[in-house]
Amino acid sequence: MAEERSRDRIQSVERAVAVLRAFGGDDAALSVSGVADRVGLPRPVVRRILLTFEHLGYVRVQNGRWSLTARILELGAGYFASSSLPEIAHPVMSDVVARTGETCSLGVLDGYDVIHVARVEERRPLPDAVRVGMRLPAHATAVGRVLLASLDPVSRERYLDDQRRERFTPRTIVEAAPLRTHLEDVRRRGYDLSLEELHPGMIAAAVPVVVDGSVVAALTVSSTTVRSDADSLTAEIVPVLREAAAEIAARHRAANPHLFRSGQAGVGTTIDADGNSVPR
C-alpha cells in the first residue's frame, strides 16, 4: 500500500509544499539559501518555486528575503469552517480557561507530531507559548501521548519501533518499552500528564475527544510547576477537561452528521510505513 501511494505522488508538489513549510519556524523571512538549507533542495529549484508562489500571491520578497503573505490563510480557511472541530471547540475551551485559569489547547496527530489546531490563552502568558499550527513531538507531550495511545495496535507498535525520539529533558520518555507501558496506562485511565518532559517548569494534562468510539483530537491544559503539580492536575484539571471533551464531541457530531452515518468518525488516523498519518 505504501509503495502504491509512493508511485502516485507528484514530486514537484511535494517540493513546493516543503518550501511553504520552511516558513513555519521562528524566522518570518528567509533567503533562498535559507529555504534551501531547511528543505534540502538545490537553490535554483527553491528559487523557481518561490517565484511561482510569488506569482500566485502567497509569498513576497524584500531585500532578498522571502516571507508569506496573508493570502496563505486561504489554504487553511476550509479547515476552520463553522462546522470544523477548532471552531466548535473554541467556546468550550474558553469555558475551560475561565474555570481553571490556565491555557487550553486542542491537538491532532500528524505523523509523529501533534499539531495544535485551536488554543485559548489565559491572561498570564506561558513561557515557550504554543501557537496555532505549531508542531510538537508527540512522545514528549500529554496531548501527544493521548493521541498515540488511541492508535490501533499495529500503528502504535510501528511508532514505538521508530527510534527518532528526542530527549528534551531528563524526564522525557524515549525508550520503546517504558513508552509502551505508559501508553497502555493512558488508554486504561483515559488521560495523561506531562511533567516537565518538553520544557523545564512546564506541565500539562490531556484527555481524548472521542466521537462514536474514535479519538478525533485531544484536549489539553498547560500550566507551570509554580502554579500546579501532578495532584492538582489530576484532581482539578482532568475532570474539567473530560467534561469539555464530551461537550466538544457532542457538538462536533451534531454539526457533522455526514461524517458519522457509518458510526465512524472518519477523521481518526493511523501511521503508515513512512511515518505519515493516514485516515483509518
Rank of each mutant, 00 (worst) to 15 (best):
L20T: 11
R21N: 12
R21L: 13
A22P: 06
A22Q: 06
F23N: 10
G24T: 03
G24V: 02
G24R: 04
G25D: 10
D26L: 15
D26G: 14
D26V: 14
D27E: 13
A28D: 14
A29Q: 11
L30M: 09
L30F: 03
S31D: 07
S31Y: 06
V32W: 14
S33Q: 05
S33N: 04
A36L: 02
V39D: 04
G40D: 11
L41Y: 06
R43F: 13
V45A: 12
V45C: 11
V45D: 09
V45L: 12
R48N: 10
L50C: 12
T52Y: 00
F53C: 05
H55W: 01
Y58D: 09
R60W: 00
V61L: 07
G64Y: 05
L68G: 10
L68K: 11
T69F: 12
A70I: 14
I72T: 13
L73T: 14
G76M: 09
G78P: 07
G78L: 10
F80S: 06
F80C: 02
S82R: 06
S82G: 00
S83A: 01
L85Y: 10
E87N: 06
E87K: 02
I88W: 03
I88V: 13
A89E: 00
A89M: 05
A89L: 03
H90I: 15
H90G: 13
M93A: 10
S94C: 14
S94G: 12
S94W: 15
V97C: 13
V97F: 11
R99V: 03
G101Q: 01
T103C: 09
C104H: 01
L106H: 02
G107H: 05
V108H: 04
L109V: 03
D110R: 07
D110Q: 08
G111T: 06
G111P: 05
Y112L: 13
D113G: 09
V114M: 13
V117Q: 01
A118K: 02
A118D: 00
A118W: 02
R119M: 09
V120K: 08
E121K: 13
E122H: 13
E122G: 15
E122P: 11
E122S: 15
P125I: 15
P127D: 01
A129D: 10
V130M: 00
R131E: 12
M134S: 09
M134Y: 08
R135Q: 14
L136I: 10
P137F: 03
A138C: 10
A138E: 03
H139A: 06
A140D: 00
A140Q: 04
T141K: 04
T141D: 00
T141S: 02
V143P: 01
V143D: 07
G144P: 01
G144E: 04
V146N: 05
V146M: 08
L147H: 04
L148M: 07
A149L: 00
L151T: 03
L151Q: 06
D152H: 14
D152T: 12
